[in-house]
Amino acid sequence: MASTISPAVESRPAAPAKGSSKGAGMSEGQKKTWWAVADLVVLLYALVPVLWILSLSFKTTDTITDGNFFPRSWTLDNYAQIFQIGLFTAALRNSIGIALISTVLAVVIGTMAAYAIARLDFPGKKVLVGVSLLIAMFPQISLVSPLFDIFRGIGIFDTWIGLILPYITFALPLAIYTLSAFFREIPWELEKAAKMDGATPLQAFRSVIVPLAAPGVFTTAILVFIFCWNDFLFAISLTSTSRSQTATVAIANFTGASQFAEPTGSIAAAAVLLTIPIIVFVLFFQRRIVAGLTSGAVKG
């Protein structure tokens, strides 16, 4: 009985027997040590490049080129600096605004489509699934030239909408796959039960289906946000001024506060700010993100 929704491919705690793949003769303690070493390697793998950029962002101008992994002297100047130049603040605002709007729209449109795919029988369903699969594989660079020309022609080059459109398009396959996998897990018999309990179709939807679908929708929103937040190719091709340039482009174009200043510190500080929301998402919603990423791939 599926009374909780868990498309997560959450594996059960490892049975003792399984550890033996690392060697049959080891004691429990030895095994734990080996796994701890393996975990540590994973930890270092994932964290070192992040810690490095964090470290750079706190280095003073004098020590930034000393090549040490950890700063010898700490400063917050780099952060102060990037907020002094208005460019980055504007870019951050663009990034947040564009990513949020794209996420909301993609999730709303994707939810509608995914509900139809998971629950309804209609002609063209396979075509839609196929089309979204094609788009997931689509080389984005192939769209850059024509979109550049088209968007200039209709006047949405270097605007928010000019980025939101391609973001929604490429986020939709992700949203549709993830959501339809979640929707398939919802015990729809509950809808019937609600009707028998005296609910109108709208009440059944609101009080039973929505609360059950919410976690899936939320997870999808995180994944879509990460996707939009991460984009660089469209942002650098379809924008030209601070009117719509996103933070990723701003960082790439940083030349420092003054012409002669070394931009490394500023870039590092901006990079850290750009990374914080992602780290927060990951820390808080690890389970959901894993579930969302894997559900589409395995369960289709």
Partner: peptide, 20 residues
């Protein structure tokens, strides 16, 4: 009549309890 207007209650095989 819609199910809700028939004043009958139903118990399902899967119980159909609202998990939330």
């Amino acid at each position: 009549r819609a199910p809700k207007d028939r004043d009958i209650a139903m118990v399902f095989q899967s119980y159909a309890l609202y998990p939330h």
